Amino acid sequence: MPSSLLPNLQKYLRDRPSSDRRMSRATAPEEQRGFDQVIKPSNKIPKAELLESEMKAHDVGQCAIADNQFSHFLDGIQRSWLLYHHRYVPVYYGYVAGVIRERKQAVMSTSSHQVKEALYLPFRYFDPDEREKLKSTNLDIIDTEAIDEGDSLSQDQADEDPQATMQPMLLRGVAVEAVTNQRANLEKELTKEWLRNKAKHPGWLVMDGSIKISKNAIAEPRAVGIIKSHNTQFFNLEDQATIFELKAGQRSSTFNPYPDNPKQSLCSWYLRLREANNEDMYFGLVRVEVSLKHQNRVNEISQWIMTERRPLSLPDSRWDRMIYPIRDCEQYLRSKEPSKASFGWLG
């Protein structure tokens, strides 16, 4: 999908040359360069509450493909391109998109699709005159509100002397995080849209990731989240060992990952989609989230997920944990995003 923002920005930069700019010559968005993949280690294990008597493996059984009630699938993408630095302050192009794909009689189609593109820069540190000129061209600009809360300077000191706390690499991380938040907001809007029209949808909505991005989804009986990453561990090593030893077609005991926050309380469990013999211990392992109302249906829902293992989501590197309809969503979104050619003018 051609960008409407990038050509206007290119014209602006061409018509208003400045020695204060340094083009980045980025060849790919940060998401493909690994800049957003740094995992921050934590010694804290979130306090999860078991909903079953003890942590153990449960066989989920099997069901016919026709019994699977999943009909809609939601996923989103983000692209964070570092365009240039203006007086050492990074300026990013952020592209976020989300889609809900509907499956009818094994055929996928687009139910809803949203896109938002904008420039991301920290107003606090950015040249105010240059910012006003950018605004005058009707470019959508988002303030990343960049301020390092762990800095020794107070907020007031930073206001008095912004340059004293200006760290280009920190501001890059804040910009990527701002794009991530924008993507989450867009996915939340898509979820709300589906829930508003849920009477028209007899099936279930499958979300790629946690359902807690939307308070309405947490309470929705027909929403399920499938989480492929395992950056957060909820149990001690003994209970984790039980999870790591799950066989294909087995689930862990159910638990509430957020018992201290009633607004985010839900039912979750781990499910092994594929055997992990001679593979990483997380191979084929996903975590599932549904409303607390479905504590008695976890085996049934797990059976539906198990039917989604075919077709394989190859050649995606996460194929062992990705159900194919989510792969279909990602392929659709990637086909619409700006191509690398859109950034060729960066040099």
Rank of each mutant, 00 (worst) to 15 (best):
A199S: 07
N185A: 09
L190S: 05
A175E: 04
L186G: 02
A184F: 13
K192M: 07
K188A: 06
K188G: 04
A178I: 12
G203W: 02
L195Q: 03
N181M: 13
L170V: 06
R183Q: 04
L205G: 14
L186N: 04
V176F: 03
L195H: 05
H201Q: 04
P202V: 00
L171Y: 09
R196W: 05
A184M: 15
V206P: 10
L170T: 13
W194E: 04
V176W: 00
R183C: 00
E193C: 11
A178R: 12
R196H: 10
A199N: 09
V206G: 03
L205K: 01
G203Y: 02
V176N: 10
R172M: 12
E189Y: 04
V179Y: 00
G173D: 11
N185K: 11
G203E: 01
E187H: 01
G173L: 14
K192D: 14
W194S: 05
K192L: 05
E193G: 10
A175D: 01
P202I: 02
L205E: 05
A184E: 13
G173Y: 11
E177T: 05
K200N: 08
L190F: 01
K198S: 12
L170G: 13
H201N: 05
V174K: 12
V179I: 11
E193K: 15
R196F: 04
V206W: 10
V174N: 10
P202M: 01
G173E: 10
L190C: 03
R183G: 00
A175T: 05
N185E: 14
L186T: 02
V174G: 15
K188Y: 12
G203M: 02
K192T: 13
K188E: 13
G173P: 12
Q182W: 07
N185M: 14
K188V: 03
A184C: 11
K198H: 08
R172Y: 05
N185F: 11
L195Y: 05
V206N: 07
N181Y: 12
E177M: 07
L190T: 01
T180D: 11
W194V: 13
N181Q: 12
N185I: 08
N181S: 14
Q182N: 05
L171S: 07
L190Y: 02
L171R: 13
V206M: 15
A199C: 04
H201L: 02
L186R: 03
V179C: 06
G173K: 13
R172L: 12
N197K: 08
K198D: 09
L171N: 11
A184Y: 10
H201F: 09
E189G: 15
V174A: 14
L205V: 08
K192P: 01
G173V: 13
L171G: 07
N185D: 06
Q182V: 05
K192R: 12
L186V: 00
W204V: 07
L205W: 03
N197W: 01
E187C: 03
R196N: 13
P202W: 02
A184Q: 15
K198T: 12
A199G: 02
R196M: 10
R196D: 09
W194I: 14
T191C: 07
H201M: 01
E193W: 06
Q182H: 10
A184D: 14
R196G: 05
V179H: 00
E177P: 01
G173M: 14
E189D: 11
T191P: 04
E187D: 04
N181W: 15
V174E: 14
E193M: 10
A199L: 12
N197I: 15
E177W: 07
G173N: 13
N181T: 10
A199P: 02
A178N: 14
R172S: 13
A175N: 07
